[in-house]
């Protein structure tokens, strides 16, 4: 990016000019604060490679005497994080697909067309925008129980993706509203129907929004805790990583190194996706707020 190189140049120029004391103080404070932010991650990785007594026995020393890779094997197979991982993956992918399809379809007609009931729909969206999850969990569980979907992947996916997620719908609506109407006119002259226009022309054009919605929903579904916890209370085989982690505490409370290894396994996918798509992550969130 040009902006980045430009600041890089001025910074280098400033180094030769000798930084002011205020600047040195700023950088030192930033580094100390940054250290507080990175330390828990460093400690976690180090703990996952130590033996359990070593974790609390060696003071602040981060380096293990000898890396104990066996911790990872134990968490993965013995404790069942392999299953939890697959469950989380299935639930996350299902939720992301559901949210993208549903919000793109609704966002398209909300952004581009007038129809009877539109104001009512938007009104309902706004009223329910800030509904806390602690409020809805009991009726959602009861509904899922009625549908005989408790203890299934589908039940969790519907619970996470079928309701809520208004931000995604509004992001699509805002984007589609700005596209020129000639797009539809031309496509219609070519004989395309509503569905062809949406899937062949509109949805591909909206890929920046789709990317944003995928990222935000992925984060939400991978990290969510309350709903999968409640839905899997009587079905251990369906636990997600987040739920499995707390079960670990209850059942093997002193296997700290196994716990640390399990935490690393659970966090690696989100952190990896974040590192690869960093700029997109930050832009998504900044963009969603500006809307």
């Amino acid at each position: 990016m040009t902006a980045a190189t430009r600041t890089g140049v001025t910074w280098r120029a400033r180094l030769f000019r000798r930084p002011s004391p205020g600047q040195v103080v700023t950088v030192v404070l930033l580094l100390v604060l940054g250290g507080l932010w990175i330390y828990p991650f460093a400690w976690l990785v180090s703990a996952s490679l130590k033996s359990s007594p070593e974790i609390f026995g060696r003071g602040l020393d981060l380096l293990p005497e000898q890396p104990v890779w066996e911790n990872y094997a134990r968490a993965w197979t013995e404790v069942g994080f392999a299953t939890y991982f697959v469950n989380t993956l299935v639930i996350t992918v299902g939720t992301v697909l559901l949210v993208v399809v549903r919000s793109a379809l609704a966002g398209y007609v909300l952004g581009r067309y007038d129809f009877a009931g539109k104001k009512l729909l938007i009104g309902v969206f706004l009223v329910t925008f800030f509904l806390p999850e602690g409020y809805t969990i009991i009726p959602i569980t009861q509904l899922t129980d009625q549908l005989s979907l408790l203890n299934t992947h589908a039940g969790v996916i519907l619970g996470l993706g079928a309701g809520g997620q208004i931000a995604s719908t509004l992001l699509y609506a805002g984007y589609f509203r700005r596209l020129p109407k000639e797009l539809e006119e031309t496509a219609r002259l070519d004989g395309a129907g509503h569905f062809t226009i949406f899937f062949r022309v509109m949805l591909p054009l909206a890929w920046p929004i789709t990317a944003t919605v995928v990222i935000l929903t992925f984060l939400y579904a991978w990290n969510v805790y309350l709903l999968p916890l409640v839905f899997t209370l009587s079905e251990p085989g369906l636990r997600t990583l987040a739920v499995g982690m707390t079960v670990f505490v209850g059942e093997r409370g002193t296997d700290w190194s196994g716990m640390a290894a399990a935490a690393v396994i659970s966090l690696i996918p989100v952190i990896a996706v974040f590192v690869v798509l960093q700029r997109k992550f930050v832009d998504s969130i900044a963009g969603a707020v500006k809307q």
Binding site: I38, N223, A242, M245, V282
Partner: peptide, 10 residues
């Protein structure tokens, strides 16, 4: 930003 993407329960 790093902790933001991590799982709250973990």
């Amino acid at each position: 930003f790093l902790p933001v993407v991590t799982t709250g329960a973990i």
